[in-house]
Amino acid sequence: MQNVKRSAHTPKTQTLARLAKLNFLAFGIVITIFPFVWVALMGTHTRSEIFSSPPPFYIGDNFIDNYYKLLEIMPFWLVLWNSLFISVMGTIGAVFFCSLCAYGFFAFEFRGKNIIFTLMIASMMVPPALLLIPFFLTVQFLGILDTHFALWFPAIANAFGIFLVRQYMVTAISKDLLDAAKVDGASHLRIFLVIVLPLIKPVLATLGIVMFIGLWNNFLSPLIVLSSPDKFVLTLALRSVQSLGDSPWGAVMLGTFLSMLPLLIAFLFFSKQIMAGLTAGAVKG
């Protein structure tokens, strides 16, 4: 027993390995967080402070001035409202429409159902960049260029959303339950509203999160649809002040930070749901 070989994992090497891992993670976290901290700090500094050396790693006192400067270069609150309006309308619409449509795929048998469902899934594979031109031409044809309607309404019919909700229904609601409700005398509308909707709340939350974040952060469709500055959404307004001559960087960074703030705060409280939602397709494979 005396000559037992020491294994490679002595306490010392183990601690070292653990230390290395933690350092690696800490480094990743710093890199991840830094731009957010930096943008918040810059929002409180004057232009000359931002561009001074060494850089100002502290909270400055120019927040109020930056705020007024921000309102000067863009109608910040109007633009924020526009973003909010489009995101909320699109989210509510998509959640309701997708769950209705998913119920159709779930509860009814009809000729061609599988073909339609497969086509719908296939449509999810088409890259969004390819859809840019047809989307634009349709919007132009309908005469709704430069309207918010063109941004939230098309978002309502969402193949991903329908697919997500239907898959959830399959796992969460047994056919027996639908039959039981039918035997109890409920109509389909009633079954949908009273039995199905309460039972699929989690997936509706997931879909809502995905939709809201996507609409809030959307840039490309507003870029090609909207032309009047008073209809701009946050992303568009921010980019429009990027190339101002002699940019008031403090104000621009303040605006950038404020535009991210709603989602950051929501993430603080609902990180689990948001992460589950945005990886929903991935994790369930």
Binding site: S174, D176, L177, D179, A180, A181, V183, I195
Partner: peptide, 9 residues
């Protein structure tokens, strides 16, 4: 009807 899985809401 009473279902095999009970089908309680």
């Amino acid at each position: 009807m009473v279902f095999q899985s009970y089908a309680l809401y």
